[in-house]
Design a protein around this nucleic acid. Structure first.
Length: 741
DNA sequence: TGGCTTGTTTCATGT
DNA sequence: AAACAAGCCA
């Protein structure tokens, strides 16, 4: 065994090796971006299997199912026995627990899991039911807003009243009504045997907390627990971990506070900081050596994160010194951006890069629409992650609705959806039919009841639906057969309803392939809701460029990365500009985006964007890039600072005819042109008078020796790249720098 | 009355 | 793109 063990540990650096081998106490691994975090987790799994631990007693909790699958595949390569390791997300673990102990959790075992879109439907139903529509003039908040509050209140574990006061103060007068909706929503879920994402966590927590025998059972079941992306867990998830992991079990959590990007969903960076208190005797291991990126890329990312209030101090360093500097390009507009990115991609491909080596990252799903058009026109194949999900597309939901009512006959939301597809059936008629169906004893009863109700007697389409239900309710039929029956039934509706039906029918073709993997309809639906496949995910291996939101790109890396829309208002998103904590998260988001790059990084920030209301609007460079030292980036117009200067000059010069800007009253917009220009001018002054060492010059420091001035941060700090110590930010007043020859 | 059509509005991030 | 409101028609 020692031979194999050696080979597993062989390629690890000392810190990684320590994390892999440390047993007998809880371990917190602080893993900087690209520091071999996944490698460490995978090797630890394989290592303990080598030591003789039964792989079925190992639990690997990750942020997405995709991450779990990838890690387990890698572990299997090290040792085939790792195939039996248990892996998944907190949500999927909770799902399994709740199905197994449904009765004791107060559920029926065939409960359906609803996604936020379903939840909003339910909430809308509750608002109607309570008669809260509001009069002519007064507008009641949208279901989306109300559900957002309900979910936030649960994730942050604050009362609705508190949340409304701080987050949506204008809704304060109707907070009582919102509380009534929240209650009605909870009751509706219970009546319909449904569970939302938040319920999965809280109900599993209650199950473990209130049933010591189940908790013991879990604690005995898992000898080893490993948790990835711990910085993005929320309060319940941390408590669940405490419930599952007692003394005597081996626990390792891995995270990076600089990469926490799910605050909006209740993630607590503090879970990391509190780990040593909550798990007594914990050891902390830091992984600081970066294996992914070249030094020029790290110089940029270190500079970006420098401005954040980081608490676990890490110094990322690498030995990959060679490589081009990250570049910044400022095309005129979105089309220019798309063309530029497309051309650079074609150049990379011509130079021998593979499509799968290239990724384009962005803040929001829609930020890539124009680029997608450009890539499609040039026949460049891509996969897109994030944004609209496969499951959220209405045609997919339509088909699944028919299957969901079979799995859970109480799922009236799905009934409503299925019925409203029929010609002549709108909300009211659907409601009437549902009233008849609610009396059904089970799926086998649906067909007869549909035929017997008044609408069924009159309408041929309703009778067709009845036939489908007869077919679907056969308990012996495998999920695949049911999916195919539902697809066959739905196809004509799809052709009828959607102009772009060929694309949608192609999407639907994915379903049978997914169904094959599952033994029961319930399992299939649950997995599908918890881990929706990426849109247009066609067969792998064909070699496709990746398009991804920054969130979905977490944990991934590519040799060549493009970050598009690096402008103020997109990244940072305009929605977070007035919230300092939200803004901090935007900075980390840009950090995560840039640290995905191994060799090449290109940031693109169009100079203007167009939208229907305001016409063309000038776009400022993202504030996180604007205040960066010039030397960490190259841009086509020279240094970044030159960029700002060009802008200043352009603003001062009376431009051509004031371009067709709508005369209609502009909406109240922040950032009037004046002060912004003023601040740029202020910067120029600083450069001249307050910055004693020119960028690019060599300086010397008592402790760090010789280094090159990379740039300044604000008025009082200087950034210097020291030979042997890497990039440092020093307070000018105290640094005692001397010019060096 | 209820369903359907048309125009308007709005749109992070994701388990 | 899809949800919503308003107005039209059976």
């Amino acid at each position: 065994m020692s031979g194999a063990g050696e080979s597993i540990l062989g390629g690890l650096n000392p810190a990684q090796r320590q994390a892999v081998e440390l047993l007998g106490r809880p371990v917190l691994v602080i893993a900087g971006a690209g520091s071999g975090k996944t490698r460490t987790l995978v090797h630890r799994v394989a290592h303990v299997v080598e030591l003789g631990v039964d792989p079925r007693e190992i639990l690997l909790l990750t942020f997405t199912r995709r991450a779990a699958a990838e890690m387990l595949a890698r572990a299997r390569q090290l040792n085939p026995a790792c195939a039996a390791v248990g892996g998944g997300t907190f949500h999927s673990l909770c799902n399994r627990l709740l199905r197994r102990y449904a009765a004791r959790a107060g559920l029926m075992p065939n409960f359906t899991i609803i996604d936020p879109a379903d939840a909003e439907h339910l909430v809308r139903g509750c608002i109607d039911e309570l008669g809260l529509k509001g009069g002519k003039d007064e507008r009641f908040p949208k279901p989306r807003t109300v559900f957002g509050l309900i979910s936030a209140s649960r994730n942050l574990e604050l009362s609705l009243a508190e949340l409304i006061q701080t987050r949506e103060p204008h809704l304060w007068p109707i907070s009582k009504e919102i509380e009534r909706i929240a209650l009605a929503y909870a009751q509706a879920k219970q009546r319909q045997n449904q569970v939302d994402y938040d319920d999965l966590l809280f109900m599993a927590e209650a199950l473990l907390r209130d049933n010591p025998d189940i908790q013991d059972d879990q604690r005995r079941r898992w000898r080893h627990v490993l948790v990835d992306e711990y910085q993005d867990t929320n309060a319940v998830q941390a408590r669940l971990l405490e419930l599952i992991c007692g003394p005597g079990q081996e626990l390792m959590v891995v995270g990076d506070d600089a990469q926490s990007i799910y605050r909006f969903r209740g993630a607590r960076i503090d879970n990391i900081f509190e780990f040593p208190e909550r798990f007594a005797g914990a050891a902390v291991v830091k992984l600081e050596r970066n294996y992914r990126s070249t030094q020029p890329i790290l110089d940029l990312t270190n500079a970006i994160i420098e401005g954040a209030g980081q608490r676990f101090d890490k110094r990322l360093f690498t030995e990959l010194l060679e490589g081009p500097k990250p570049r910044l390009e400022r095309p005129r507009d979105e089309r220019g951006q798309s063309r530029l990115v497309r051309e650079r991609i074609q150049k990379l491909l011509a130079d021998g890069a593979r499509p799968e080596d290239i990724a384009v990252l962005f803040r929001a799903g829609r930020d890539s629409f124009d680029l997608e058009r450009e890539l499609t026109a040039e026949h460049l194949a891509y996969v897109k992650y994030g944004g609209l999900k496969f499951l959220e597309a209405s045609h997919i939901k339509d088909v699944l609705a028919h299957l969901r009512v079979i799995a859970n006959p109480l799922d009236f939301v799905s009934w409503q959806r299925a019925l409203m597809l029929l010609p002549g059936v709108g909300p009211t008629t659907a409601q009437q039919i549902v009233a008849h169906l609610a009396l059904a004893a089970g799926p086998a009863d649906f067909g007869p009841r549909l035929r017997a109700c008044p609408q069924g007697k009159r309408s041929a389409p309703v009778r067709q639906l009845a036939e489908l239900m007869d077919e679907l309710s056969d308990p012996a039929a495998p999920p695949l057969d049911k999916v195919e029956a539902a697809l066959e039934y739905y196809e004509p509706f799809c052709r009828e309803q959607y102009e772009d039906y060929p694309r949608r029918l192609r999407d639907l073709e994915e379903l049978p392939g997914l169904a094959r993997a599952f033994g029961s309809l319930e399992d299939m639906l649950a997995e599908l809701v918890l881990d929706p496949p990426a849109a247009h995910a066609e067969e792998m291996g064909g070699g496709r460029i990746t398009l991804s939101t920054v969130h979905s790109a977490k944990g991934m890396e590519w040799p060549h990365v493009f970050v598009i829309w690096a402008t103020d208002g997109r990244l940072p998103s305009s929605a977070s500009l007035d919230d300092p904590d939200g803004l901090e998260e935007e900075r980390r988001l840009l950090y995560v985006a840039c640290t995905r790059a191994a060799k090449g990084l290109l940031l693109v920030a169009p100079r203007e964007s167009f939208n229907r209301f305001d016409g063309a609007r000038d776009q400022e460079l993202s504030r996180f890039l604007d205040d960066l030292p010039a030397a960490v980036m190259e841009s086509s117009g020279g240094a970044v600072f030159g960029e700002a200067f060009t802008r200043l000059a352009a603003a001062a010069a009376p431009d051509e005819t004031p371009v067709a800007r709508p005369v209609a009253a502009p909406r109240a917009v922040k950032e009037p042109a004046g002060p912004k220009v003023g601040s740029v001018a202020g910067k120029m002054a600083l450069l001249q008078y307050d910055r004693p060492f020119p960028v690019g010059e060599m300086v010397s420091h008592a402790k760090f020796g010789r280094g090159k001035v990379i740039g300044y941060r604000g008025d009082d700090k200087i950034m210097v790249h020291f030979t042997g110590y890497g990039l440092k930010t020093l307070v000018l007043k105290f640094a005692g720098l001397q010019p060096a020859q």
